[in-house]
Every structure is written in structure tokens, then in C-alpha cells.
């Protein structure tokens, strides 16, 4: 079939494709015009076009800034720890849910597990303060009532890491199970029956059937997650973080917010954003390449 007849026959499908393409053009490609701010001394009143070119001066300024390296380190550290803790959590949870015999119980627990995903970080932040505070937090009230010393969950940086990761798991693990559960419904039930016949116990079934059938999903999600290793949401570190744990809670997004939005230095903020995007791209391509070589799975 010639390309044009193909196109004419299936024009409805192409028409459907137009909307997402417009979305990408407007919200993803359009703003790339602004990248040039990184190479200009941005003046509010001259606009992007009228501002003067300064070459790589702004890059030099950013790369000489100690705060930048600290926030870069924290971003990588928090994201990496998140990858270790929050990435496997939904997988375990999904398998556990899948193994549940009672359908009603599974449905109810799934719904309960989804709820935190819909709570905004600002509210979670308030809850976290009430629960983990040192002076009057719920948990510390219990600890001190039992005669132990209060634990500085929020104000000591190592303890804070635990709080940060735990709230992350609590907030996202339930929602993260959706993709896995969808993939799990695709498994042919006969495989399990056969395994039962062969005398496989539950763990063996999980290991030899459930996990392998999730491989593609896991790899895909891992690659996507690696692509985000340089970017970190603004709300979570900003809301859960505080002055006492700045050493760990100050990340690129909060840095950009402070420098760009609060201090009006859009040039520096753009430089950081561009840097993040470039490194993120390298991570995605690298992870994709590695997974192609090692597991013969890739998304590109």
C-alpha cells in the first residue's frame, strides 16, 4: 500500500494524534525558545530577545557556586536513595496484593493504599510535623512517655533522611502498584496451575513466574526513573525539609526557586535547568543502552 493511500484510509487515527502533538509543540518544544536565557544577561524589561548575549559567563558563575554542588549532591543522593527504597516498594506491594486470596480484601486495601497519592505535599508536610515533631510530635510523645529520649526525626539530618524516604514510600507506593497490577493480570493462569502440579511453593511461583513476567515493566520504569535522577520535585524536599537539615534537604529545585524566582536571577536558574536536562538525557540514554545490552529490553 502506498503511503498516501494508507494515510487517507486511516486519517482518523492521525487526527487523534494531532492533539498530543500540539501539546508537545506548545508545552515542550515552544518553551525551548527560552533556553537562550542561559546565554544572556536576562533583563526583565528588554525581554528574552532584547537581552544581551554573555556566552558561558553564567555557566561559569554556577559552576563556581558551592551551593550548587551541595544541592546537586543532595539531589543525586535523595533520588538515589529513593530509587533504592521507593522503587522496589510498589513492586513488593503489588506482588503481595496479587497473592491475596480474598478479592474484597484486596480491593479495599488497594483503595486505602491509593489515598496518600491524592494528598498534596503541603498537607502531608503538616501531618509529618504533627507526627514526627521532637517537642510535641505524636511518636515522640509516646517515646518520651516510655522513658526514652526524644528522637529528632525532623531536625537531625540522618534521621530526617529516614523521615523523607518513609513519607515518600507512604505517599507513592500504593499508586505505583497500578502498572504492576495491570501487568500481572496479563499472566496466563495456566502457568501457575502447572507450577502447582510440579510442587512449586508460593515463593518459587513468585520467583519463577510472577517476577519474570514483570521484567519488561520493571525495566521500563527503571529507565524512566533514571531519567529523572537529576530532577527532583520541588514540593517534597521543600515541604518536608527545614532549616536544621538544609545540608540534605536543599536540592536543585529549591535552589532554582531561591535563585530564580525569589532573587529574580533567571539566567542562573535557566543554566541549572539546562544542566539538569542534559545530564538527565545522558542518564536515560545510558540506562537504555545498558538494559539493551544486559537484558535485551529497551524503550527506544
Amino acid at each position: 500500500m502506498r503511503a498516501s493511500t494508507y494515510f487517507i484510509r486511516y486519517w482518523q487515527l492521525y487526527a487523534l494524534l494531532v492533539l498530543p502533538l500540539i501539546y508537545f509543540a506548545i508545552f515542550k518544544y515552544g518553551p525551548m525558545y527560552g533556553i537562550q536565557i542561559a546565554f544572556k544577561e536576562f533583563n526583565f524589561f528588554q525581554g528574552i530577545h532584547g537581552s544581551e548575549w554573555i556566552g558561558f559567563d553564567a555557566f561559569r558563575e554556577v559552576f563556581q557556586n558551592q551551593e550548587f554542588y551541595k544541592t546537586l549532591r543532595n539531589t543525586l543522593m535523595l533520588n538515589f536513595l529513593d530509587l533504592l527504597v521507593s522503587f522496589p516498594a510498589p513492586l513488593f506491594l503489588a506482588i503481595m496484593l496479587y497473592e491475596l486470596k480474598s478479592k474484597a480484601f484486596r480491593k479495599v486495601s488497594q483503595t486505602i493504599l491509593y489515598v496518600p497519592h491524592f494528598i498534596s505535599w503541603v498537607i502531608i508536610g503538616g501531618i509529618v510535623y504533627q507526627v514526627f515533631g521532637t517537642q510535641s510530635g505524636m511518636i515522640n510523645n509516646m517515646i518520651t512517655a516510655l522513658g526514652f529520649d526524644a528522637v529528632p526525626f525532623l531536625t537531625e539530618k540522618t534521621h530526617w533522611l529516614f523521615t523523607y524516604l518513609a513519607t515518600g514510600v507512604w505517599q507513592s507506593a500504593g499508586w505505583g502498584t497500578i502498572l504492576y497490577l495491570a501487568a500481572l493480570t496479563g499472566i496466563n493462569g495456566e502457568l501457575f496451575e502447572a507450577a502447582d502440579m510440579d510442587g512449586a511453593n508460593r515463593l518459587q511461583r513468585i520467583w519463577y513466574i510472577t517476577l519474570p513476567s514483570l521484567k519488561t515493566t520493571i525495566v521500563t520504569l527503571l529507565i524512566i526513573n533514571l531519567g529523572h535522577i537529576m530532577t527532583i520535585g520541588f514540593e517534597r524536599p521543600y515541604v518536608i525539609g527545614n532549616l536544621a537539615v538544609r545540608d540534605y534537604s536543599d536540592v536543585l529545585s529549591t535552589f532554582v526557586y531561591r535563585v530564580g524566582m525569589e532573587s529574580g536571577q533567571y539566567t542562573l536558574a535557566t543554566v541549572v535547568g539546562l544542566f539538569q536536562a542534559v545530564v538527565g538525557l545522558i542518564f536515560v540514554l545510558g540506562a537504555n543502552y545498558a538494559s539493551k545490552k544486559l537484558a535485551d529490553e529497551s524503550i527506544l
Binding site: Y129, G133, T134, Q135, S136, G137, A150, P152, L154, T155, N242, L243, A244
Partner: peptide, 9 residues
């Protein structure tokens, strides 16, 4: 002083 004073901005 309160142990949580740093959280209260």
C-alpha cells in the same frame, strides 16, 4: 527553648 523552633517559620 523548644526543640522544634527551627520548624516554625
Amino acid at each position: 527553648i523548644s526543640k522544634d523552633f527551627a520548624l516554625d517559620e
